[in-house]
């Protein structure tokens, strides 16, 4: 069996009185691509944000590469996050910095790399996402698709072991979705471990090893893309897919 990278055990999350995540369990193996799908408000983002502790789970355990996360100190959490890249729906590029500075900020400040090394890596990553010529631009002058590709390069600059994506294409105009998905597909092909919250069923079908269907704060159904998309067992999965496919 492949080594297990992330392990989720009995995780719950409450905001005040409302329980948003209910007793979640799951495992992500090294090199796997997990796609999390489900209706709006089901708790997908909250789940993803619990993985790198942007949200603190109310109870339960999350371990990453054998290390239990919920009891870490602040410094240890910072260190942990270096190994988990995150890409947001709204890109969240630093608006006060050029594209290049966005990508090399964390390597310089956190990893304390030499300026020349950091720049070289950053330029390589920008070339990898096809944006080397935009290095000196500010984010506001880029299209949404370009911004999201920079955001992916920025996360990769820390050389993470796993990448978390929260609906990376939902805020994009349809003609730009493809360029971002291509970059993600390349990443998966290179063997990157990925957890992807997405509404792009085509991407989930072709790239995911596992699809987790989330609704009402629980994983209602898990399986391979074929199982989930061809033979869904759960009524809620069926209803969700029917709605998506007719849209």
């Amino acid at each position: 069996m492949m080594p297990e990278m992330i392990k989720i055990e009995n995780v719950t999350k409450k905001f005040g009185q409302t329980e948003v995540l209910k007793d979640l369990n799951g495992q992500v193996q090294k090199g796997q691509v997990i796609c999390v799908i489900g209706p709006s408000g089901g708790g997908k983002s909250t789940f993803l944000r619990c993985l790198n502790l942007l949200e603190q789970p109310t109870s339960g355990k999350i371990s990453f590469e054998g290390q239990e996360l919920t009891s870490l100190s602040e410094a240890q959490i910072n260190h942990l996050r270096e190994k988990m890249g995150m890409v947001f729906q709204s890109f969240n590029l630093f608006s006060n910095m050029t594209v290049l500075d966005n990508v090399q900020l964390a390597p310089l400040k956190v990893k304390k790399l030499a300026a020349a090394t950091a720049k070289k890596t950053a330029m390589q990553l920008l070339a990898q996402v096809g944006l080397a010529d935009k290095a000196e631009n500010y984010p506001s002058s880029l299209s949404g698709g370009q911004q999201q590709r920079v955001a992916i390069a920025r996360a990769l600059a820390m050389n993470p072991d796993v990448m978390l994506f929260d609906e990376p294409t939902s805020a994009l105009d349809p003609e730009m979705v493809g360029e971002v998905l291509t970059v993600m597909q390349d990443l998966a092909n290179q063997g990157m471990t990925m957890v992807v919250v997405t509404h792009e069923m085509g991407f989930a079908k072709s790239v995911a090893n596992q699809v987790w269907f989330m609704d009402g704060g629980v994983f209602a159904e898990k399986g391979t893309p074929t199982q989930i998309f061809e033979h869904p067992q759960n009524e809620r999965t069926k209803a969700f897919l029917a709605k998506i496919l007719e849209a």
């Binding site: 410094a75 995150m86 400040k109 956190v110």
Partner: peptide, 23 residues
């Protein structure tokens, strides 16, 4: 400052102080 800016910085491993100073 949009909360996403802070979250993006923290998710890269920047500390609170670094996030405040740089972003």
């Amino acid at each position: 400052v949009a909360v996403g800016q802070k979250e993006a910085a923290r998710s890269l491993g920047l500390s609170r102080q670094q996030t405040f100073k740089s972003v």
